[in-house]
């Protein structure tokens, strides 16, 4: 195994639409304590028409990463480039213009829609903000959007509370699509929905990706859904990416112990295998601190000034941090 720069992993992919480098987010400490490193030196790329699945326990920094990329959360350091433009240092005005290229689909379709506006008003908002459609065409465009997410354009005059969760999430997606974005952060887009609706929304997102060539950062804790939608998967633990590779690489041959723990927690439909798994000794969940300590692969990253990252196969990398203590 050789230590590699994470950027090297994706070099064979098409020119990235989104490029994230060493992105860190810190939350100021309350009182005397140390600042919390919510996101710590995260790097990855997403190509056009690609989906990166971001998995991890709650509190691992997935959502914060998504928000930091969208500049809804101030980054402490690092860079985020969308379509080749650096977002972290961009002026507020320019950033607002850039937002038409990147959109956000939030987890909860009940709270992410303005409760006192009709569906039509809600869908009109981004169009008005970006003045992307002449006023005369507003109505037409809203109908188009509803059609795109398979909703009846006649529902325009209704309020969000008159809709089911799945229908609302379709509205949320339609709103995200309103300005023809290139990239959408989907933050747990289906976790608030029932299983049948989840499948419908996932199918919708996939078909929209095919039709419109969208890129997704798909944040979820449900590994099964991520496997279904993601081309590549990144596993986050305590603010860092500990493993990243193609969906098949990560799911079928996990290299980092934490990834294994995560995958083992997923119930398997085969009762024999499930029983066997439960009989196995629980993995040691005491992980090393992220900083300092030796590299499990014996590389001295400090002296060689390399990232704590090791490629186990082409496009499949793993961090040497957070291995179980021995």
């Amino acid at each position: 195994m050789t230590a590699l720069d994470p950027a090297a992993i994706v070099e064979e992919l098409p020119r990235p639409l989104l490029q994230v480098r060493d992105l860190s987010v810190r939350f100021p400490a309350r009182g005397e304590g140390k600042a919390l490193k919510a996101v710590d030196r995260v790097s990855f790329d997403i190509g056009p028409g690609q989906t990166l699945g971001l998995v991890g326990q709650s509190g691992s920094g997935k959502s914060t990463t998504g928000r930091a990329i969208l500049q809804l959360q101030k980054a402490h350091s690092g860079s985020v480039r969308l379509l080749g433009e650096e977002l972290t240092t961009m002026s507020a005005t320019r950033l607002r213009q850039m937002r038409r290229h990147m959109q956000f689909v939030l987890q909860n379709p009940y709270s992410s829609l303005h409760p006192r506006m009709t569906i039509g008003q809600i869908l009109r908002e981004p169009l008005l903000v970006h003045r992307s459609v002449p006023p005369a065409r507003l109505q037409e465009r809203v109908a188009e959007l509803l059609d795109l997410v398979s909703l009846d354009p006649g529902m325009m005059q209704r309020y969000p509370h008159e809709f089911s969760g799945g229908q609302r999430q379709r509205v949320v997606i339609a709103r995200a699509l309103a300005v023809n974005p290139d990239f959408i952060v989907c933050d747990e887009p289906v976790s608030a929905l029932d299983v049948r609706t989840q499948a419908q929304i996932v199918t919708l997102l996939q078909s929209l990706q095919e039709r419109l060539g969208l890129s997704y950062l798909f944040i979820a804790h449900d590994l099964a859904i991520v496997r279904e939608v993601a081309h590549r998967v990144a596993v986050m633990f305590r603010g860092r990416i500990v493993e990243m590779g193609s969906a098949a690489q990560v799911y079928d041959s996990p290299a980092h112990p934490y990834t294994r723990v995560l995958l083992d927690a997923v119930p398997v439909p085969d009762p024999v295998r499930q029983r066997e798994r439960l009989r196995r000794a629980p993995p040691d969940l005491h992980f090393l601190e992220g900083d300092g300590g030796g590299c499990v692969h014996g590389t001295d990253h400090a002296s060689s000034n390399t990232a704590e990252w090791h490629e186990v196969a082409a496009g499949h990398g793993v961090s040497c941090r957070y291995w179980p203590s021995r």
């Binding site: 969208l70 809804l72 607002r96 213009q97 937002r99 038409r100 990147m102 959109q103 956000f104 939030l106 992410s112 829609l113 303005h114 908002e125 981004p126 903000v129 970006h130 949320v172 709103r175 995200a176 309103a178 300005v179």
Partner: peptide, 8 residues
Amino acid sequence: TAVRSFGG
């Protein structure tokens, strides 16, 4: 947050 994310 949604309004902010689409550029309001």
